[in-house]
C-alpha cells in the first residue's frame, strides 16, 4: 500500500482568463521508504504539489491520502496535528526559529505535540548529523549547511512517516549540498522514512529512487531506478 497517494489533484488560482492551473489532475502514488525527487522548471507547479502533499494548502479538487487518511477531510486543527505527527518539512531557507537554540528547534515539533522527545532517538539523529557541539547555538551563528542539518534533524525528530523537502540545498554550495542530502538519505533509510524532495540539482535528483517530472501542472514522466 502507498504511504502517499494523490487522486486527480487540482489547484487553480484566480478565475476566468486570469486562471492559472498550477496543478491540473495529478495522480501519484509513493511507497513507504521511497526516495522521490520532483523536478521541473520554475512555475511548473512542483512547489504547489509539495504544499498540497503536506496539507499546507487546500486543493481546488482531488484528494491526498497520507497513510490511509484523506487529509483534506480533516478540520484545520486536526490537519495541523496530523501533519506534525506524520510529516516533516525541510525548507530551502531552513526556517529555524531565531529565538530558540539548536536543540530547542529540533525538539520543537515534538513539544508542540505535547509529548516528551525520545531522547536516545533524538541524540542519535543529532549524532548522525554532527550537531552535538552546536546544540546551544542560536541559528544565526550557524553556517547554511549547519542550519539545514538542524532543519533536517527537526524534520526527523518527530519520527514522521514522510519528509517533504522543498529545494533543501537551494542555498548551499554543491559540496555541502551533497553532504546534506547524503545525510538525509542515510538517516531516512535508517528510520524507514519516505522522502519527497523538490530539487533543481540534477546530481541530487539522481540520488533518488525515482524522479518525477512535472510540467504545466501535470506529471510528464516518472522514472524508477
Amino acid at each position: 500500500m502507498s504511504i502517499l497517494e494523490t487522486i486527480n489533484l487540482k489547484k487553480y488560482y484566480g478565475s476566468g482568463d486570469a486562471m492559472v492551473k498550477a496543478l491540473d489532475g495529478v495522480d501519484l502514488a509513493i511507497e513507504e521508504a521511497e526516495y522521490v525527487a520532483i523536478v521541473g522548471t520554475s512555475g511548473s507547479g512542483k512547489s504547489t504539489l509539495l504544499h498540497l502533499l503536506g496539507g499546507l494548502d487546500r486543493p481546488t479538487g482531488g484528494r491526498v491520502v497520507v497513510d490511509g487518511r484523506e487529509i483534506f477531510a480533516l478540520k484545520e486543527e486536526e490537519l495541523t496535528i496530523f501533519r506534525r505527527r506524520k510529516i516533516g518539512f525541510v525548507f530551502q531557507n531552513y526556517n529555524l526559529v531565531p529565538v530558540l537554540n539548536v536543540y530547542e528547534n529540533i525538539v520543537l515539533p515534538i513539544q508542540l505535540d505535547g509529548s516528551e522527545p525520545d531522547k536516545p532517538y533524538v541524540d542519535k539523529i543529532i549524532g548522525m548529523l554532527g550537531l552535538e557541539s552546536k546544540l546551544n547555538n542560536l541559528p544565526n551563528n550557524l553556517s547554511g549547511g549547519q542550519q539545514q542539518r538542524v532543519a533536517i534533524a527537526r524534520a526527523l525528530a518527530a519520527k514522521p512517516a514522510i519528509i517533504l523537502a522543498d529545494e533543501p540545498t537551494g542555498n548551499l554550495d554543491s559540496k555541502t549540498s551533497l553532504e546534506v542530502i547524503g545525510l538525509l538519505k542515510v538517516t531516512s533509510r535508517q528510520f524507514k522514512q519516505t522522502i519527497v524532495m523538490i530539487t533543481h540539482n540534477e546530481e541530487i535528483a539522481q540520488m533518488a529512487d525515482r524522479i518525477i517530472h512535472i510540467e504545466d501542472g501535470k506529471i510528464v514522466g516518472g522514472e524508477s531506478k
Binding site: P98, L100, E104, V107, Q111
Partner: peptide, 24 residues
Amino acid sequence: VSVKRTEKLKKSTRGAKMPQMALA
C-alpha cells in the same frame, strides 16, 4: 526579527514551551 550576533549561546533544553518562546 534578527537576534544580535553578540548572543552566541543559549543554554536551555526546556525548549519550545509557549511561555518560554513568548518571553524569548
